[in-house]
Nucleic acid binder design. Sequence first.
DNA 1: CACTTGACCTGTCCGC
DNA 2: TGCGGACAGGTCAAGT
Length: 289
Amino acid sequence: MPELPEVETIRRGLEELIVGRELQAAEDDNPHTFPNDKQQVQNFLLGSRIINVERRGKALLINLSSNYSLLIHLRMTGQLVYIGLQRFGAGHPTKSLINALPDKSTRVILTFKDSSKLFFNDQRKFGYMKLLATNLVEEDSFIKKLGPDALSKELTAGIFIKRLKKRKGSSIKATILDQTILAGIGNIYADEGLWASGIHPSTPVGHLTDDKVVKLHVEIVRILKLSIKLGGSTDRNYIDAGGREGSYLEFAKVFRREGQQCLVCDNEIVKIRVAGRGTHVCTRCQTIE
DNA sequence: CACTTGACCTGTCCGC
DNA sequence: TGCGGACAGGTCAAGT
């Protein structure tokens, strides 16, 4: 469930908390979660320092002084939580969280030389963390297929229209969820963006006017930026690198609001299925063209 | 080729 | 209270 705003919030937290620290130990419980062998970990992870933390769509890249990088995808239930020493104050994990980790969802523990730790927790084990040479990151099978990041400057309205039109027969919701078209949108922000643009999620892309598509682009960018300001959305188990929840869902217009009234027209928000996902829609404000 | 569906997992919630 | 089943949704492989 971590989508662009949640992953960006984690990235900013890690940038603040782990840059410059030296890795001393790594333990993992599952070869799917962390496929690298002991020799690679010894040679390229341990003893290296954190240079910076980047984001590509919903994926994170932790770049290391060894010229290797950790590519991390949290998929649905992944968390990255940093726990340092005496960090019990505002903006840091609560004492109860510190005492709770590791727990049974903990897949990888990275320990720094100062004995602070980064926990990679993932209840459903869909996520992964892998070590690869920094100069080969762009060749990675996931990274190389990604479309432009939803918040990148290069994704102009014109390019947004052009890229969406590659999928003119499929629904607009399936299309904006496709990470090869643009990177970063997931189920929450797809529903929110489509409501804000007055577009029914089932509308075939080919039926939308260019004006509607431009409106959608503007709304997606606005909503993603707003959510980053609010620390993202905590639907079930998302927390950031400091253990904090995000508050975007308090301001959501349709997501998880089925059975409640539309904030514009008072019509009841309904939950339907589009592109295989639970989809929240106001059928009065959002029409199929 | 364009597009859709099911598998991967585990925890939670709902109805009986 | 316990239990089976539906559901949650990011990505990829397999299917239509």
